[in-house]
Write a protein that binds this DNA or RNA. Structure first.
Ligand SMILES: [Mn+2]
Ligand SMILES: [Mn+2]
Ligand SMILES: [Mn+2]
Ligand SMILES: [Mn+2]
Lengths: 144, 144
DNA sequence: TTTTAAAGTTAGTCAAGGCTAAATTGATTT
DNA sequence: AAATCAATTTAGCCTTGACTAACTTTAAAA
């Protein structure tokens, strides 16, 4: 009787959180390659000082992060020189820029103030699956 | 002539990322108080072992986190006993549970598969401002 | 009531991502 | 060519959030 009724274990919650932790681990990398790409496009090159200013962190923090990105094959750099994206880095930057734009456009399209959308998109983008992104893209610009 | 054209500095990008880092710092706390609340509701009490199982982390990790939550005034606990939410913890749990539900419902309502929505909502919820949340709530259930 | 198993704790390690302060290098002025 | 200034790097520190391995306590079985 009763039997603890394991009616619907559905899926392990643990899977959800494992994926969340994965997304987490990629966030800084994604924002950096995107920003490095932006800087190269806007100013011709990406310097540490510009990254530090845009992210609001110290030069030392940028240095550490760039070393990590280099280790992971997303950028190349030589001491006291500018930072460049590898092909792998450019590919990721492109993906992230497009994703960012889709999220931002979607938020604005449903009525979120553009200023607010800019804040929220910066975080949301890292947690949007391909599937959800596709829905966002499809829904954007609809007349509600 | 030219003058470097500082046409539209708008707001500092740095603000956006500062807020992102803030949201980050709150994520684990938010997921824990929500989960502790769920466990108390579902099973009468919140034990470490259940938290470890649901988050997919080790018992040691749960222990560390609970100590931090206790330090920050969200929970109380005594050695080898269950974990309880303080009023502050309950208030946060309630807010997070509602927010989580609104995000999840919204995703499903625009056509995201419920399984996928469960994954994405777990991350997105922490990056949705009050303003965006209000828009999500309003848009949910519309006929598109 | 003793034994055993499960739950919880402690100690020690690690990587990411922040910081400050000090040293170094490169670029611009004088 | 020196001197100076800005940019970058290095060293050392911190917290969070993860782990393993070993230990302790509580609860359940025998
Ligand atoms: Mn971002
Ligand atoms: Mn971005
Ligand atoms: Mn969450
Ligand atoms: Mn949640």
């Amino acid at each position: 009787m009763g039997d603890k009724a394991v009616v619907n274990p559905r899926h392990n919650k643990a899977e959800v959180f494992a994926r969340l932790r994965d997304a987490h681990a990629r966030e800084v990398t994604e924002d950096y390659v995107e920003m490095i790409g932006d800087l190269i496009a806007e100013e011709g090159e990406a310097r540490s000082v510009a990254l530090a200013e845009r992210f609001g962190v110290t030069a030392a923090t940028v240095n550490n992060t760039i070393k990590r990105l280099e280790r992971d094959g997303f950028v190349t750099s030589r001491p006291y020189r500018a930072i460049f994206l590898t092909e792998k880095g450019e590919a990721l930057a492109k993906k992230c820029r497009e994703r960012h734009q889709i999220v931002y456009n979607f938020l604005v399209s449903i009525g979120v103030d553009p200023e607010i959308a800019e804040f929220d998109a910066e975080g949301i983008e890292h947690h949007v699956s391909e599937e959800t992104l596709a829905v966002f893209a499809k829904e954007t610009g609809r007349s509600y």
